[in-house]
Design a protein around this nucleic acid. Structure first.
Lengths: 231, 231
DNA sequence: GTCTATATAATGATAGAC
DNA sequence: GTCTATCATTATATAGAC
């Protein structure tokens, strides 16, 4: 099964000469776009891949086509990484694992750029993370370690948007001089938020129930409505 | 005090013909950049302001100079708005007020773009918001409505980054077709997160103290160290 | 201060040889 | 499949007239 083996590989996990030129260009693009954003010129990608600019267009039609190919590839890598983590059953959140694993640094950087610029991949990625969070939280609720929520999906979305958004903002405000250091930067970010997050999640923050009760009295509707509007 | 009166004005709060050309160009740039990001061409700004592209450069030197002028102006407007809110003493968070007030929509959009792209204004803005949050939380702690934290500044930063990041991500993923509808979109976002936020802030989420206690046992250092690293 | 005209550079994409 | 050469567009910024 050489083709399956090849498709499963992660960026830079295999000598460049073993990849098709198309794949090499795509990988170079993921790296460039991850580092500099989608404003990076096609010529730069071509140079990184050691080919001409014309060839890039020949293979992907347009720059947008190249980005689409990158999106698809990144999504696939992430999907496999998730599955792998599920099988090996490593603890900790998926996001943290992704940020920590050096080998996923390019993919991770690319995802961050996608979230920064918006687009289909970003939506997909967030939506999947919300789905996962719903599952994890449900498991926790079933196990009794996590308190049930009045609107499980809204809570999951809140947590995902907050965590993801905070991380994104953190790197945007403090861009790493060395792009390779992105994982280290994210790790530092996680360290910085670990205490307040744990504290808040276990003890809460408000000493009275007044605000919550007021809200519940004011909005007696089925809470699912709020989630619908958020989409 | 005509000059002070003039300087205090907010965008679109005054007929265009009363402003200097320089100010008109700057306001047009804030609007354009807020709507389309900093990739928007100088020509577009010039057209919006009803002047030639050359004149824009004549006044601001370079496009970067134009952006710097926008940054300074937005920061000033925000500073005044904060002060105004402090004086009138309106309840609710400053961010929410800013997002809600229609008159600040252009400034708000510009701030979001800044956060998306990074840069000095974004850092400044976040840092000021953290400072404010520290103050508000301290007031709450003093009043007994808010639980004290093991690291007040880390908690404030966590809340600001999360709230701001979630809002930013929300609009990035779901860009408003009509740019004028940005405030409505943010309002919907706040509505969607209101319940989970209140729930989490009052009741927490974890049923056991294990994770927090484990963390505290594992990291016995003064918690301020984490904050230092986060910068 | 303001304009028109233009210099200069970079970009995405095409054409055609090999 | 791959290259070189080129086109067409768009961008910032300049020069000089008014």
């Amino acid at each position: 099964m050489r083709s399956a083996e090849r498709a499963g590989r992660v960026l830079a996990d295999v000598p460049a000469e073993d990849l098709t030129t198309r794949a090499r260009i795509r990988d170079a693009a993921v790296l460039r776009f991850g580092r500099e954003g989608f404003g990076a010129p096609v010529r730069a990608v071509a140079a990184d891949a050691g080919v001409s600019a014309g060839l890039v267009i020949h293979h992907f039609g347009t720059k947008e086509g190249l980005r689409a190919a990158c999106d698809a590839h990144v999504l696939e890598v992430v999907r496999r990484a998730k599955h792998e983590q599920l099988v090996t059953g490593g603890g900790g959140s998926f996001l943290q694992a992704l940020a920590t694993a050096e080998r996923f640094a390019p993919v991770f950087a690319y995802v961050l750029r996608s979230l920064q610029h918006g687009g289909p991949l970003a939506r997909d990625f967030v939506e999947h993370m919300v789905d996962d969070a719903v599952e994890y939280l449900a498991d926790g609720v079933a196990a009794g370690t996590i308190r049930p929520s009045r609107d499980e999906r809204a809570r999951a979305r809140f947590l995902v948007l907050g965590t993801l958004g905070a991380g994104l903002l953190s790197v945007t405000l403090d861009p790493p001089a060395d792009p390779a250091d992105l994982t280290g930067l994210m790790r530092r970010h996680f360290d910085a938020v670990a205490l307040p997050a744990l504290e808040l999640y276990t003890e809460g923050m408000l000493t009275t129930r007044r605000m919550l009760d007021d809200y519940l009295a004011y909005v007696p509707d089925p809470p699912a409505a709020a989630d619908e509007d958020a989409r």
